[in-house]
Computed example of a mutant assay.
Amino acid sequence: MFLAIRELLFAKTKYILIGLITTLTVSLIFIVSGLAEGLSADNASSIQGLAADSLVLEAEAEGELGSSFIPMQKAKEIINDQEQEANTLSIQMMNATVGGGDKQISLALFATERDGMLIPEVTEGRSPKQENEVLADESLKQDGIQLGDELQLGEETTYVVAGFTTEQRYSHTPVVFVKSDDLEQVNAVAVKGESVSEGAYSTIPKMDALHGIPSYSQEQASLNMMIIFLYVITAFVLAVFFYVMTLQKRDQFGVLKALGANNTYLISGLIIQVILLSIVSVGIATAISFGIGALFPADMPFILNMATIVQPAIIIIVVSVLGAVVSLYQVIQIDPLEAIEGVAT
């Protein structure tokens, strides 16, 4: 520890430069992670937040909610067969006009039992009581929607916004909850706990249904690939830096070995340097990322919190240490006699 800190202070310019590069790379990782989390929520927060553990779908749908069609009568039979609480769920993408005007907005209509477990918590207004009342995601406020406004779907169907909820998005559109009493078919039966299904119907965990949402898997795969490459870049940069630094210090390491320092002592000093550098870079990058995130527009799908940062931060530190391991071979192979002769000449 003493040797590691002394060297950091002595060659501070070199370490500040590599720390700056690491900080910028880590900041980019955090920002891309925030975008991945934000896009995931914007695409599927309504499914992620369902008060259910599994979904019963039509077997031929192969896990895709939009391709599953269950007759209402059969859905009621499935619900009656469950040992746990269960509700129907129908999803329909639609366009709506506001207050009979010309402005159109895209909506995801979630139809379920009015007093069922799938109705989310109301954050403003009240839960729908009348036949023509709905509960809407608060992101509709950005389109000028307020409590009491009318949403017209088609030529004859009109709903009144009775309340707002939060974090209810599906396929990058706000969700509106309506009753499912008059539907002839639904997309799924949501079950709290393990589900019982057989024959033409299959059960999948709630989170597996995310991959059936259009573009969800593609978006996440692209962003995750970018994050992986950034991890590799971080490891490569640190590996090259510490490898070159170790080569430059071969003579000094050799002298230390001649004075009695063993490989364990020298290697631990190198590892401590990497860990300290990584921790400081992660700390600064965290502040930078939160600062940049605060400047993004409110409607930008970006979610960055400590839960989002912890996992990438740990991976970065581990990857940094693994990158520096390349230099350990040079430390072990240093011959004290050759190093002393090199210094003497």
Rank of each mutant, 00 (worst) to 15 (best):
L3A: 09
L8P: 14
L9T: 12
A11Y: 13
I16E: 00
L17C: 13
I18M: 03
L20C: 09
T25V: 15
V26N: 03
S27C: 14
S27T: 14
L28V: 11
F30A: 01
I31F: 14
V32T: 10
G34W: 13
A36I: 07
E37C: 06
N43I: 04
S45L: 11
A51C: 09
S54V: 10
E62K: 15
G66A: 07
S68I: 05
S68R: 05
A75P: 13
I78T: 00
N80S: 12
N80Q: 12
D81Q: 12
Q84A: 14
M93E: 04
N95M: 13
G100Q: 08
L107G: 02
A108W: 14
L109R: 07
R114V: 04
D115R: 10
G116Q: 00
L118V: 05
E121M: 13
T123G: 04
T123M: 09
T123N: 11
E124L: 14
S127I: 12
K129H: 10
E133Q: 05
L140M: 03
L140V: 11
K141I: 06
G144N: 09
Q146W: 09
G148H: 13
G148K: 12
Q152P: 10
E155M: 14
A162V: 05
G163I: 12
G163E: 00
T166V: 06
E167M: 09
S171E: 13
S171T: 11
V175S: 02
V175R: 01
V175Y: 04
N187A: 06
A190W: 03
K192L: 08
K192M: 09
V196Q: 03
S197Y: 08
K206W: 11
D208V: 15
D208W: 10
A209G: 04
A209T: 11
L210R: 08
L210M: 10
G212S: 08
I213N: 01
I213A: 01
I213D: 02
P214K: 15
P214Q: 12
P214L: 15
Y216K: 01
S217H: 04
M225G: 11
I227F: 11
L230T: 09
V232K: 01
V232C: 10
T234P: 07
F236L: 11
L238C: 11
L238Q: 09
A239P: 00
F241T: 04
F253Q: 02
G254V: 13
G260D: 00
A261K: 05
T264F: 14
T264D: 01
I267V: 15
I267F: 12
G269C: 01
Q273L: 07
I275H: 02
L276K: 02
G283Q: 05
A285G: 05
S289Y: 08
F296Y: 03
F296H: 01
F296R: 04
A298Q: 08
P301D: 08
F302T: 00
I303A: 07
M306I: 14
M306L: 10
V310N: 07
A313G: 04
A313I: 08
V319G: 03
V321T: 04
L322T: 07
V325Y: 13
V326D: 02
S327Q: 13
V331Y: 05
Q333S: 04
L337E: 03
L337Q: 06
A339Y: 03
A339D: 00
I340N: 00
A344V: 15
A344E: 06
